[in-house]
Simulated scan of single mutants.
Amino acid sequence: MKKALLSLLILMSLIGCTNVTTLSNDSTTNTSSSTTTLSTDTTLPIVLATPSNITMNESYVLSWDPVDLATSYLIKINDQVISVSETSYDLSTMEHNHFYDIQIKAINQNNESLYSEIMELQLFDTIDETINTYYSINSTSDYYLDLIGYGDILDIRYNHIPSDTDENSSFWEFEDDILSINQEFLSSLPVGGYLFIVYFTTGVMSVEITLIENTGPYPIYGQTLKQVMGEDVVIRFDIMNCEFIGLSGNGIEGTDYTFENNILTINSSCLDPLFLDNPTRNIIIGYEFSVGEDTIISFLIIQR
């Protein structure tokens, strides 16, 4: 039996069988053969290029360069995905006063590209107002600014960096219409002017903060103030650990103003008559603070 099996194996090798499987038990022995063919097809799927040169014009029209072999494009806007066949898309109809993260990928029947890098869209209406304020790097308190009627703050950018990044993290708070900026953050900056972009739910506005080196009390809006007929003048002070004593000049009396929570309010009933004869005049009002046994005196200039 062994000789017969050996002869069979030799015969099969002579006729070109390359793979032999031998099954055996006590009574029978079976053999089988198969030929394996290796594929020589090395064709790989065509990978589409990622859309590039993505830009947006002043009318909020998004555009990008065409991608070879792409038949359409997917635009991812936050969690929404939109399919387009062109290489542009109008974003102006989207809801204003929001931030949007935008990515684009190219696709065809068989393949798709990677998404492009995230592009941030700031779709905000412009609040036509710039607030100019002052802050002393010698202050021991945070910076405070009253922002009434603008809605909630979504973010504040300093040097165009989002405030939730490591570089600008947690430098501001907004509660009860009062913006506060961290004293430690502001005092770390050199003396000079700084532009903060404030994004409200109603639009975007600029706040300029000039850092100074005062050691005594000062009004954060500066010494020159504008008054509208019939409206009170409201001034926030950084009192620098001093105590407010009062105002003087131009016949002003104690009943013409209040000073609470570092906010000085001068009644319009006191100011309006002073402008009747000469609306272009400057009204000078002195203010006085004390610190220990010392007295600090300065003045405000009120204009129409």
Rank of each mutant, 00 (worst) to 15 (best):
S92G: 05
T93L: 07
M94I: 07
M94C: 00
M94E: 03
E95K: 15
E95T: 15
H96K: 15
H96N: 12
H96G: 11
H98I: 02
H98N: 12
Y100D: 01
Y100T: 04
Y100I: 03
Y100C: 04
Y100E: 01
Y100L: 03
D101H: 13
D101W: 10
D101F: 12
D101T: 13
I102H: 06
I102D: 02
I102K: 05
I102M: 06
I102S: 04
Q103V: 04
I104C: 01
I104S: 01
I104M: 02
K105Q: 11
A106P: 12
A106E: 06
I107T: 12
I107H: 02
I107Q: 10
N108D: 11
Q109S: 14
Q109L: 14
Q109A: 12
N110C: 02
N111L: 00
E112A: 11
S113D: 02
L114K: 13
Y115D: 01
Y115P: 04
S116P: 09
S116G: 06
E117W: 00
E117F: 04
E117I: 02
I118S: 10
I118Y: 05
M119Q: 09
E120V: 14
L121N: 07
Q122G: 10
Q122P: 02
Q122K: 15
L123K: 14
F124A: 11
F124R: 11
D125Y: 10
D125R: 04
D125T: 14
T126M: 08
I127F: 04
I127N: 01
I127H: 02
I127P: 00
D128L: 15
D128P: 09
D128S: 15
D128Q: 15
E129I: 08
I131V: 15
N132D: 13
N132M: 07
N132Q: 12
T133A: 04
T133R: 03
T133E: 01
T133Y: 02
T133S: 13
Y134Q: 15
Y134H: 15
Y135H: 13
Y135G: 07
Y135C: 11
Y135Q: 08
Y135A: 07
S136Q: 05
S136R: 06
I137P: 08
I137S: 13
N138G: 13
N138S: 14
S139K: 06
S139I: 07
T140F: 08
T140V: 12
T140I: 09
S141K: 10
S141E: 13
D142S: 13
D142M: 05
Y143C: 05
Y143V: 06
Y144G: 01
L145R: 06
L145S: 03
L145A: 04
D146M: 04
D146L: 08
D146V: 10
L147H: 07
L147E: 06
L147V: 07
L147Y: 08
I148P: 03
G149T: 11
Y150F: 15
Y150R: 12
D152Q: 13
I153M: 05
I153R: 06
L154W: 04
L154R: 12
L154I: 08
L154A: 06
D155N: 15
I156H: 09
I156S: 03
I156D: 05
R157I: 00
Y158M: 00
N159M: 11
I161L: 08
I161G: 00
P162H: 08
P162N: 09
S163F: 13
S163R: 08
